[in-house]
Nucleic acid binder design. Structure first.
Lengths: 142, 142
DNA sequence: GATTAGTCTATCAACTAAGTAGACTTAATT
DNA sequence: AATTAAGTCTACTTAGTTGATAGACTAATC
């Protein structure tokens, strides 16, 4: 299961994706529409900004906005930015790898099984982009 | 990523699978071989016992053992016993479902994407059993 | 310069991971 | 039968991480 933070980040990115090209969006607007605690959302958006996927504008008429078209960012990228590992075990994670102390990966059955699930998951998450997060009925707006 | 507890549980079950039919196995033996903190392991095994997948024998010559042949338990079952959700979001979890407050599942793009990854993951985890967790070079013993 | 909105710091609560201490149970030894 | 050793079972404590809240601060616009 993804952390709350990651879940919120995906929802916020989806909301911003629907508004791409239409100027900054208020934190409070995202918070209300996506039911995300506003102070938690602040820190998440700030972190996403520091990852250079978002930018913000201060003052009146300010807010957050996507830097690139939604199509350019895959779900796998988005998850890794805030949430960390996609794999179920550290020893099969591509980006957050840690070696097991107790087993040899060449013979470990658990490792083999988890690599398969990781690959199956990535096959999907690397194809889907932020554009797919836009609700079907809003998609024409983009 | 699975919780530490779930990771440990899978490793312990794998160890017990390799010893299935050969009497009780000491907690301390599993702890040493699988590098799991012994007191943490105790609580995990106890919980697994209460799920009726393991049983234990107290006193001298005691220990834990699998109740059923390793083949009978899938990895999906094992993970759910201790770790909970396999899905990446609550709103796509079969066994730990929670409705999102902010979206309609019929139109939500995130929901759709995550259902696909859940199904891909389950397709694998429901085929693999505890038998596959036995190290290749030990498998003949069973 | 007043208002609006993002940024930063500090704090708190809940949960997970892990360790400590001891009680209870069984089997072997005497 | 009593003792002892080998094991699980139960309760409590601590450290670290995650989730969530509050308030002061900074920057941009009007």
């Amino acid at each position: 299961m993804l952390s709350k933070k990651t879940q919120y980040a995906l929802k916020a990115l989806g909301y911003l994706a629907a508004r791409y090209g239409h100027g900054p969006v208020l934190i409070s607007e995202i918070s209300i529409n996506k039911k995300i605690p506003i102070k938690f959302l602040e820190t998440i958006l700030l972190e996403l900004k520091q990852s250079n996927i978002l930018d913000s504008k201060k003052g009146k008429g300010g807010g957050y906005y996507l830097l690139q078209p939604p199509k350019k960012t895959t779900l796998a990228q988005a998850i890794r930015l805030v949430g960390g590992p996609i794999a179920l075990l550290p020893c099969v994670s591509l980006n957050f790898y840690e070696k097991c102390q107790d087993c040899d990966e060449a013979t470990c059955g658990l490792n083999k099984a988890m690599i398969q699930t990781r690959d199956a998951t990535l096959r999907i998450l690397e194809k889907k982009t932020l554009e797919e997060l836009i609700d079907v009925d809003q998609r024409k707006q983009v």
